[in-house]
Amino acid sequence: MVVLCFGILLISLLKGSLSDGALQEGSPRISESAIQISRCRVAEYLNAHTGYDLLPDSGKVIALDINLPVKQSFHILHEQGIPVAPLWDSFRGQFVGLLSPLDFILILRELETHGSNLTEEQLETHTISAWKEAKRQTYGRNDGQLRSNQHLVHATPYESLRGIAMKILETGISTVPIIYSSSTDGSFPQLLHLASLSGILKCICRYFKNSTGSLPILNQPVCSIPLGTWVPKIGEPNGHPLAMLRPNTSLSSALNLLVQAGVSSIPIVDDNDSLIDTYSRSDITALAKDKVYTHIRLDEMTIHQALQLGQDANSPFGLFNGQRCQMCLRSDPLLKVMERLANPGVRRVFIVEAGSKRVEGVISLSDIFKLLLS
C-alpha cells in the first residue's frame, strides 16, 4: 500500500511582536476591554463547536505509507498539490506522523551540506520511516511521530474547535489530522480530515461576519491592535527586523532563513522593499517537477528561478491576483485580514504601504489565534 485515499462524508502563528510603529496617527490602540469581550465570544463559539464542523460535504484525504521512498513521496505531494500528508504504518495499523515540506527542505540541505550531488538514487534509498529516524537523531526532533512509545498529535471529531486550535499552537505544527475510531483502543482508525488554523478561522469569519457588532475587534484597523510583526521605524531601539528576500537571493540562503526563522513564508521585495512575491516552505515541492532536484545546486539557483518552476512559463513574477501574495493596508479592519487568512494555503498576510507596496509588517495565522485565545 503506497497511497491511501479515504472518502469523506459529512456526518453532521512565528510568535509575532508589535512595534509601536504599527500605530498610525489618529488610530488609537483598541481598549483591552474590547479585546477581552471579543476573546470571550470567540471562546464561547469555539467551545460550542467540534471537529465535525470542519469536515467538507465531500472530498478526499491522502496518506502516505511510511515505507514509501522519500523521492516518490514528494512527487506525490507535488502532483496532488498538497503541502502535508499523514503517514500510515500498515504493520501497526496506525497513523504515525506527518510528512511536510520542512522534511524535504532538511533533506536537500543535508545532501548539499555534505557535498553530494542531488541524485535520484540517494533519495530513492531512503524510506520515509528511515528519514524520520535520521531526522530525530540529527536534529533532535522526534515530532511525536514514528517512535513506538509516542503517538501522533491528532484530534477526534468530537473535540472542540478551541481544543484543536490550541493543539496546533502548542505543538507548532501546521496541520492536525482528525481521526475517528469506534474502538476504545484506537484500532481501525479512519482519517476524516486535516484540520488547520485557516479552516477554524473560516468558521469564525462565517459565524461572526454578519454580526460584527458582537465582536468589537473585527472592525478595528489592524494598526490599532497588538498584533503581528512590523518593520521598525527609524529610531526605534527595540524594533524587531522583518526577514525579507531579494529575487536574486540563492535558494540555499532562502531555505536556511525559513528554517532558522521558523516561519512558513518570507516576502520577496525589490530594492525599495516593495512586495514582489513570497517564498513559502511548500514551494520546495516544485523541485519534484521533472526531477529538477537531481540536477541543480541550491546555492546556484535563485529564488526567482525556483518560483518559475511552479508557475506557467508566461506568468509574470509575482502573482498578486492569486493566493501567493495576500496583502492588506494597516488601515484595513481585522475582519478583512482574517478573511484573507481563512483561504486554504494562506498562512501570512503582508501589510503594505498604499501605492508603493512597501512591506510594513506581516500578520500570521498563529498571530490571530494567539490574540483571540490568550
Rank of each mutant, 00 (worst) to 15 (best):
V3D: 03
G7D: 07
I8G: 05
I11L: 04
S12E: 15
L14H: 13
S19H: 01
G21Y: 12
G26D: 09
R29H: 06
R39V: 04
R39S: 03
C40T: 13
C40K: 01
R41Q: 14
N47I: 13
N47K: 08
T50I: 04
G51L: 11
L55W: 12
K60F: 07
V61G: 01
V61S: 07
V61Y: 00
I66L: 10
N67Q: 07
L68C: 08
P69E: 12
P69A: 12
V70C: 10
F74K: 00
H75W: 12
Q80H: 14
Q80C: 15
G81I: 03
L87I: 14
W88D: 07
S90W: 07
F91Q: 00
G93Q: 06
G97H: 05
P101L: 10
F104W: 15
I105K: 02
I105W: 05
I107Q: 00
G115H: 00
G115V: 09
S116Y: 07
N117G: 01
N117S: 14
N117R: 06
L118Q: 03
Q122Y: 09
T125K: 10
T127S: 15
T127K: 00
I128Y: 01
S129N: 13
A130E: 15
W131Y: 09
K132W: 11
A134I: 10
T138H: 08
Y139G: 15
N142R: 13
N142Y: 12
L146G: 05
S148M: 06
N149F: 01
A155G: 09
E159Y: 05
L161R: 04
A165T: 08
M166P: 00
K167S: 07
I168Q: 03
I179C: 01
S181Y: 14
S181K: 13
H193T: 06
L197P: 05
G199A: 04
C203G: 02
C203R: 07
F208L: 08
S211K: 01
S214I: 15
P216T: 13
P226V: 04
L227I: 11
T229P: 04
W230D: 12
E236F: 07
N238S: 12
P241N: 05
L242A: 11
L251S: 09
L257M: 15
S264G: 15
S265V: 03
S265A: 08
I268E: 01
D270M: 04
I276V: 08
S280L: 09
R281A: 15
D283T: 10
T285H: 12
D290M: 03
D290R: 07
K291P: 01
K291Q: 13
Y293H: 09
T294M: 02
D299V: 02
D299M: 06
H304V: 00
L307G: 00
Q308H: 02
G310P: 05
G310M: 09
Q311T: 05
D312Q: 08
A313T: 01
Q323N: 07
C325Y: 05
C328A: 15
C328Y: 03
C328G: 06
L329C: 08
L329T: 09
R330N: 02
P333N: 00
P333K: 11
L335N: 03
L335Y: 12
A342E: 11
V346C: 04
R347Y: 13
F350H: 10
E353V: 04
S356R: 15
V362G: 00
L365H: 08
I368E: 15
K370M: 10
L373M: 10
S374H: 11
